[in-house]
Structures are given as structure tokens and as C-alpha cells.
């Protein structure tokens, strides 16, 4: 109860909680699209690829203000996607290898840059490594406002282009025939996913951000076949995981926020996989059992079913 009160009174906890919820909402929404587009690991690639962009933006502006760094991250992430599609469209190298190359090389380059920046005199660069590992506890009000602003724009764009996104996700061929700029819309969706990644990066860090793009959508997919419901569920799952992570880590000593958020969303995924109606594993186990079990009432019923499934007049003795 004491902890609950702290949410309203403690400045740090409130910021962390709000930040985590915004992070969960934005990445959850985009996660639904990422999962449907078979791009779950895009979050992983992009969160790594963003690092050199952050450092270069810092080198250009010379200050650690959130907005320029986020824009730098966004540009680097998009550049990474561009290279990725160049590699897969011009050579026989497949998506997974292209992603791996971009992820490791961009991040390695970012690391080299970061180590150089850190050796420079001055203290402005302090805290740049937050983009590597995330540091939720250091979230301040201006961070939350920036995150909410950028995330809000992303969500607004999804609402605006809802019909178009739905179409290119499920039937790109048809979208092309009715004259939609499919290529452009693809780029827009990818940009929005990169935005979601970039928004969360400084809270949960590179590795854990990939979970926030892969997991909420995968969980939401189990509950519904409708895109609208799935996106909303995905956003809610993300936000719940964010809130749970922030609250649990603030109520115990020495518990890092990012990993707890990831474990929370993992639990949601497991529950969804097991218990979701229709698609849940337990439900299908029950169904299989009831089909396999011999019916005690009508012993001849099964024989009848098998017999009638036979093509008539072919195998009749």
C-alpha cells in the first residue's frame, strides 16, 4: 500500500512508471504489425543499428538532448533497413544473414565511436551509454514528454493510415492492384517500428527492446483474428508489462526495470499461448482428447463416420 502511494508522491517512480507505460503502449501497438509482417526480429536489428546514429547525433550537436539523439537513432535505423533490403534484393543472401550483418556491424561501429567519444575531454558525453543498456531509473520528466510526443505521433499515423496498413499487411498484391503506394507504405510501417524501438531504447536498452517488439504482438495474436482487437490487446499487454516492471522494480532493492518488464511480457506470452480460447494449447489438447477418445455411448458411430468418408462406389466390396 505504501508503494502504491509512492506512485503519486515519488517523482522518480512516477516518471519511470509513466515512461514504462508509454514505452509499452507504443511498442505494443507496433509489435502487432511487426509480428504479422514476420518482422519480429526487426526490433532487435534496429535497436542495435541505432547506436551509431545516437553517437553521431551527439557529435554533431554536442549536447545530450533527447530529441536530436532520437532523430540520429531513427536515421541510423532506417539506413540499416535500407541496406538490409539492398542486400536481400540484389544478392542470394537471405533476410536472416542480412539482418545479422547490419546488427553486428552497425553496433560494432557505434561501440568504436562511443569509446572514442568517451575518451574526449569534457563531461557532456556522460550518460550516452544509457542507449546501450537502458537505465529506467534515470528517466526524467522531459524524457517522458519526448517519448509521449514521438510515440503519440506514431500512434496517430497508424490511426490515419489504418485501412492502408491493414491492406498491405494481409494482401499486398491487392493493395498494389488498387493503386496504393505499397513500397512507400512499407517504408512508413518500418519507420514507425524504428520509432517505437528508439523511444524505448534508453529505458530498457538494446537487447531487451527486441522483446518489446517481438512479444506483445505474439501474445495478442493468440486471442483474436481481428486486426483491430489484436492491436489494442497488444498495446494493453505492452503497457501492463511496462507498468508491472516499473512497479516491481521500484518496490524491491536492486531489481533492474528493463529485465523485469521483459519477464512480465514473457509471462503474458506464456499465459496467452496456453490459455487463449481457440488457439490456446490447453484448449487444443482438450479438443484432441475428446476426438480421440472412443465414444462410450455409440460404439458404432465411429465406424459409420469412417465408412461414409470413403469415396462411394470405389472400394465397396
Amino acid at each position: 500500500m505504501e508503494n502504491l502511494l509512492l506512485i503519486f508522491t515519488d517523482y522518480t517512480i512516477r516518471n519511470v512508471l509513466l515512461g514504462a507505460i508509454v514505452l509499452g503502449l507504443v511498442s505494443g501497438t507496433l509489435s502487432a504489425f511487426a509480428v504479422l509482417r514476420k518482422a519480429s526480429l526487426l526490433g532487435d536489428t534496429m535497436s542495435h543499428a541505432a547506436l551509431p546514429g545516437v553517437i553521431i547525433a551527439f557529435l554533431i550537436t554536442g549536447v545530450r538532448a533527447p530529441l536530436p539523439l532520437l532523430i540520429g537513432a531513427l536515421i541510423a535505423g532506417l539506413l540499416g533497413t535500407l541496406f538490409m533490403s539492398l542486400i536481400t534484393s540484389t544478392t542470394r543472401i537471405k533476410q536472416d544473414s542480412a539482418q545479422g550483418v547490419i546488427l553486428a556491424v552497425f553496433f560494432g561501429f557505434g561501440m568504436a565511436l562511443l569509446s572514442w567519444v568517451i575518451r574526449q575531454p569534457g563531461s557532456e558525453h556522460a550518460g550516452l551509454d544509457r542507449f546501450l543498456f537502458g537505465q529506467a531509473a534515470a528517466t526524467v520528466e522531459s524524457d517522458v514528454i519526448t517519448m509521449a510526443g514521438i510515440g503519440g505521433i506514431a500512434l496517430l499515423l497508424i490511426a490515419l493510415f489504418w485501412k492502408e496498413f491493414k491492406l498491405i499487411t494481409f494482401d499486398a498484391q491487392y493493395a498494389r492492384t488498387i493503386g496504393l503506394p505499397v513500397g512507400l507504405l512499407d517504408v512508413l510501417v518500418t519507420t514507425l517500428i524504428v520509432i517505437a524501438v528508439v523511444v524505448g531504447l534508453q529505458m530498457v536498452g538494446v537487447v531487451l527492446m527486441s522483446a518489446m517488439i517481438a512479444a506483445p504482438g505474439a501474445a495478442a495474436r493468440q486471442w483474436t483474428n481481428r486486426l483491430g482487437v489484436m492491436v489494442i490487446l497488444s498495446a494493453v499487454f505492452g503497457a501492463v508489462a511496462g507498468a508491472a516492471g516499473a512497479l516491481i522494480s521500484s518496490s524491491a532493492a536492486n531489481v533492474p526495470t528493463g529485465p523485469v518488464i521483459v519477464l512480465a511480457i514473457t509471462v503474458i506470452v506464456i499465459v496467452s499461448l496456453l490459455f487463449a480460447p481457440n488457439r490456446g494449447i490447453l484448449w487444443s489438447l482438450r479438443r484432441t482428447k475428446s476426438v480421440l477418445a472412443p465414444s462410450p455411448v455409440e460404439p458404432n458411430a465411429q465406424a459409420h463416420v469412417v465408412g461414409s468418408a470413403r469415396p462411394k462406389g470405389v472400394y465397396e466390396p
Binding site: 509480428v35 514476420k38 518482422a39 519480429s40 526480429l41 526490433g43 532487435d44 537487447v207 531487451l208 527486441s210 522483446a211 517488439i213 517481438a214 512479444a215 504482438g217 505474439a218 495474436r221 493468440q222 531489481v255 533492474p256 528493463g258 529485465p259 523485469v260 521483459v262 519477464l263 514473457t266 506470452v269 499461448l273 488457439r279 494449447i281
Partner: peptide, 23 residues
């Protein structure tokens, strides 16, 4: 389980295990 695709399967497992390690 055929409930998730390959990319999602990888993306779900390793951050979770990594998180446990970090905690």
C-alpha cells in the same frame, strides 16, 4: 506449438533468458 513464427520464437526466448541473467 505452431502458434508463433520462427522469427518471433527466437525473439521471445533470448531476451527472456538474458533478462533472468541480468536480474
Amino acid at each position: 506449438t505452431r502458434r508463433v513464427r520462427e522469427d518471433a520464437a527466437i525473439g521471445l526466448v533470448f531476451p527472456a533468458l538474458f533478462s533472468i541473467a541480468v536480474i
